[in-house]
Design a protein around this nucleic acid. Structure first.
Length: 593
RNA sequence: GGUUCCGUAGCUCAGUUGGAUAGAGCAACAGCCUUCUAAGCUGUGGGUCGCGCGUUCGAACCGCGCCGGAAUCACCA
């Protein structure tokens, strides 16, 4: 049942019995703060006009009506203008009975909405780095959260596999690679190709320096450096589908894809559809021509096509080059239309960094002006940069944090910590590997996802590897610990699963039940705001609450009575809820650690 | 300069239809392992919620104006 709604209805009914018809949507009910006695609080200030009494008298009057009118309400107290309503413990035990009996607690009924979420979208000339990690984790997690909210989700990846950047790697490989392959070098394909991209840049700089020494201006040298001219020629050949260039392009991209697959797998993310820009970059031209005919766009003297958005507070934006070739915006327009039509989409989410806020503002506006009303259903999930303690990641300064290195380092640290604490002593080596991987990645994922996506975040390696406090491993630990309790109960043949939750319920247990009751609303809220951080912080609160309770109350060493079975069942339900929440973040939880 | 976003404890972050005395973690300090996992628990200290004005019974939250920081404003993607 929806408790907030239920309480709200009850209160509203009783207020009406006192003061006549009122607008129930104006009644403010909120959860009572911990330092006060009670479960729900009615703020009576807005009702004073109706009651024509003091805040205290009004609250008391309503409180009396409520205790009379609803058997679930066992009492109340009044502090200033706040009416704190106390619910009967049986009410919470009944809620717990519902929750523990529910298979997919927190998951919402199917909505039939089709949502595409695009994330990752890497370039094929370099390996993935920390910024991509945030992108991938966000995208995957939001997809999970949307599924939990009952939507049909299509996870899409648009690979930027064409352009001058990949040609740079190809040229450098041709010139200096000596036929190196991932097999011959033992390197991951994306790293190998990335190395040639760096190599290109080194030679390019050297050539520029040489030309400048010979008396050329720096600007001209940048254009005339032989290696750059070769890369540009290669791009032209690629566009003309030169067989040799095309074969090399396919080969090197293939290496990169193999490398990416390894990283994706390690991160635990995947896709339902993979698009390649080489196949989509010609889309959108007809859309532009259509807009041109209808006078929405205009052509400049050099033949280029623009849209004037100054009336909307933006600038003029280029949609098609003078030579008729498309730009980023052109293909994005075309891709959007194609996707919506082919997949019958109700909504489309782009997980893209906040440096492209302007681009998406324009994209939505242009589609809107073309008459596509679904432009309102495009959502740019804009996330902030990841910064390091000494500032931004800069590839020139070598401060880029490589995704594969990072993952390995996290897992290694998890292993060292676990060994130090003796956690792995009773494990087989496979179990140990699996636990270290879960913990290391759990730490990384949680560290990134617990922060509000739109905020610029600081990634401090030292802190991310901390496993204490508000971290993934803390939550995993709580889960593992509960599993351990339940294993012991099973060994002792205590059948808590079929127990009929009853008996006395401690105040701490009511607190836990209340928190469990919040789970579905939390999932819904995360779905609306596309914010995994909501889930992460919820899971942390629940674990913290349980740990505190767990510490004070023995669960196993008591008589095997109804109350003990109830506690075990509560522990079990907490563990299931924690596991469910972690699944929405893409974090695995171990049975033991 | 225009647009968008951010500013909460020494540090990293929570905090929604505006509500009571603003919360965690890290770091510091003090306790707790003979009982189910101490990756834990309990306590102490630490705040003009960037600044100012306004809206009202009431503002970290809403409005306006400043200050500070970030992104962007390419015939790059």
């Amino acid at each position: 049942m929806n408790i907030d709604q239920y309480i709200s209805d009850v209160v509203c009914r009783n207020i009406e019995s006192l003061y006549g018809k009122v607008d129930c949507s104006q009644i403010q009910i909120q959860k009572t703060r911990k330092e006060f006695e009670g479960d729900y609080t009615l703020v009576v200030f807005p009702l004073l006009k109706l009651s024509r009494k003091s805040p205290e008298a009004t609250a008391t009057e309503i409180g009396e009506a409520l205790t009379r009118g609803c058997s679930d309400i066992s009492g109340f107290n009044v502090i200033k203008g706040f009416l704190n309503i106390v619910l009967d413990k049986k009410f919470w035990v009944e809620r717990f009975r519902e929750i523990s009996a529910c298979e997919n607690y927190g998951m919402h009924a199917p909505t039939g909405r089709n949502i595409m979420i695009e994330y990752s979208s890497p370039n094929t000339n370099k390996p993935l780095h920390l910024g991509h990690v945030r992108n991938n984790l966000l995208g995957y997690s939001v997809a999970q959260i949307l599924k939990a909210n009952g939507h049909n989700v299509i996870k899409a990846n648009l690979v930027n596999d064409r352009g001058i950047h990949i040609c740079k790697s190809m040229i450098a490989w041709q010139l200096y690679g000596n036929g190196a392959t991932p097999e011959s070098t033992g390197k991951k394909g994306d790293h190998l190709v990335g190395n040639y991209y760096v190599e290109f840049d080194n030679h390019y700089k050297a050539e520029i320096a040489e030309l400048v020494n010979g008396g050329m201006s720096e600007e001209e040298a940048k254009k005339k450096a032989p290696i750059m001219l070769k890369a540009q020629e290669m791009l032209r050949k690629w566009e003309a589908k030169d067989p040799e260039v095309y074969a090399l392009w396919e080969k090197m991209n293939g290496w990169v894809y193999d490398g990416f697959d390894v990283t994706y797998k390690a991160l635990g993310v995947d896709f339902d559809k993979v698009y390649y820009e080489s196949q989509t970059y010609l889309l959108g031209k007809s859309l532009v021509e259509d807009g041109l005919r209808r006078g929405i766009f205009f052509r400049k003297e050099d033949g280029s096509v623009w849209i004037d958005l100054t009336a909307d507070g933006l600038d003029q934006k280029l949609l098609l080059r003078g030579d008729g070739t498309s730009v980023y915006m052109t293909q994005d327009l075309g891709t959007a239309l194609k996707r919506v039509e082919e997949n019958n989409l109700d909504e489309m989410i782009y997980v893209v960094g906040n440096e492209q806020n302007y681009h998406f503002q324009v994209l939505k506006l242009v589609l809107k002006k073309l008459g596509y009303d679904w432009s309102d259903e495009i959502y740019h999930l804009s996330y902030g940069m990841v910064e390091l303690p000494n500032g931004k990641m800069k590839s020139r300064e070598g401060t880029v944090v490589d995704a594969d290195d990072l993952i390995e380092k996290m897992v290694e640290t998890a292993r060292e910590m676990s060994q130090e604490l003796g956690k792995l002593d009773s494990c087989t080596s496979e179990e140990a590997d699996s636990i270290c991987r879960m913990v290391g990645l759990g730490a990384l994922k949680y560290f990134i996802l617990k922060v509000d996506p739109k905020k610029t975040m600081l990634f401090d390696p030292k802190e991310s590897i901390d496993f204490n406090g508000n971290t993934g491993p803390f939550i995993q630990y709580t889960h593992a610990r509960i599993c351990s309790i339940l294993r012991k109960a099973d060994e002792q043949c205590v059948n808590y699963r079929d127990c009929d939750a009853a008996g006395e319920c401690l105040p701490e247990e009511v607190e836990i039940i209340k928190t469990l009751c919040d789970y579905p609303a939390t999932v819904a809220s995360a779905g609306e705001t596309f914010s995994p951080s909501v889930i992460a912080n919820y899971a942390y609160d629940l674990c913290k609450l349980f740990n505190s309770y767990y510490h004070d109350h023995s669960i196993l060493h008591e008589k095997c009575d109804a109350s003990r079975r109830m506690r075990l069942k509560l522990a079990d339900t907490v563990a299931r809820t924690v596991a469910s929440a972690m699944k929405l973040l893409g974090i695995e939880v171990p049975q033991r650690m």
